[in-house]
Simulated scan of single mutants.
Amino acid sequence: MPSESVAGRLDDDHFPAYTMGRAAELVGAAPAFLRALGEARLITPTRSEGGHRRYSRHQLRLAVRARELVDQGTPLDAACRIVSLEERLERAERANEELRRREADAVRGHR
C-alpha cells in the first residue's frame, strides 16, 4: 500500500508524474512540441535524477491549450503568450474571488 505522502502527490496537479513520451502521447503531439514549449518558457519540466523531463498535469493542460491554438494557425510564440496570459488571468480571477469571499465573511462576522 503506498504511503500517505505518495498518495497525496498523485492528486497534486503540479507533481511531475509524466515522462516525455507519455506526456507527448496525452497532448497528442511530438516530443519536439513539448521541447519547443519549454524553449518558449511556457512550461518548465522537472528533471529526474537521470536528467529526463517530467511533466505535471497542469503543464499538460497548458500544452494542450497551446496545441489547440497552433492547430488553429497561431504561431507557436503567440500561442505560448496567449496561454501564459490566460493562465495569469485565471490566477488573478481566483485571487479576486478569494478576496471577495473573505470580505463577505468579515462583513457577516461583524453583524
Score class of each variant (00 low, 15 high):
residue 99 L to H: 09
residue 2 P to H: 11
residue 42 L to G: 04
residue 29 A to S: 13
residue 42 L to N: 00
residue 71 D to S: 13
residue 54 R to D: 07
residue 64 V to D: 06
residue 111 R to C: 09
residue 95 A to S: 12
residue 7 A to P: 03
residue 47 R to Q: 11
residue 4 E to R: 15
residue 52 H to G: 09
residue 94 R to Y: 02
residue 40 A to L: 08
residue 74 T to K: 07
residue 5 S to R: 14
residue 92 A to D: 12
residue 28 G to M: 04
residue 69 L to M: 06
residue 109 G to T: 03
residue 47 R to G: 01
residue 65 R to S: 10
residue 88 R to K: 12
residue 73 G to C: 05
residue 51 G to D: 02
residue 50 G to C: 00
residue 22 R to F: 10
residue 106 A to R: 13
residue 37 L to W: 02
residue 64 V to G: 00
residue 25 E to A: 15
residue 73 G to N: 03
residue 104 A to I: 02
residue 49 E to Q: 13
residue 49 E to H: 11
residue 53 R to M: 08
residue 84 S to E: 12
residue 77 D to A: 12
residue 102 R to Y: 08
residue 89 L to K: 10
residue 49 E to L: 14
residue 70 V to Q: 05
residue 66 A to M: 00
residue 55 Y to I: 05
residue 94 R to S: 09
residue 36 A to V: 02
residue 80 C to N: 02
residue 75 P to Q: 07
residue 63 A to V: 02
residue 74 T to R: 04
residue 64 V to T: 13
residue 100 R to H: 11
residue 97 E to R: 15
residue 61 R to Q: 11
residue 56 S to K: 07
residue 35 R to Q: 09
residue 103 E to C: 12
residue 22 R to N: 11
residue 103 E to A: 15
residue 17 A to N: 08
residue 20 M to I: 09
residue 3 S to D: 14
residue 45 P to D: 04
residue 87 E to I: 00
residue 12 D to E: 11
residue 103 E to F: 13
residue 72 Q to S: 12
residue 41 R to L: 06
residue 68 E to K: 04
residue 76 L to K: 04
residue 22 R to G: 00
residue 69 L to F: 07
residue 19 T to H: 09
residue 27 V to N: 01
residue 29 A to E: 09
residue 59 Q to T: 06
residue 79 A to K: 01
residue 55 Y to C: 04
residue 99 L to K: 11
residue 102 R to P: 00
residue 67 R to V: 06
residue 56 S to W: 05
residue 52 H to P: 04
residue 82 I to Y: 01
residue 62 L to M: 11
residue 90 E to A: 15
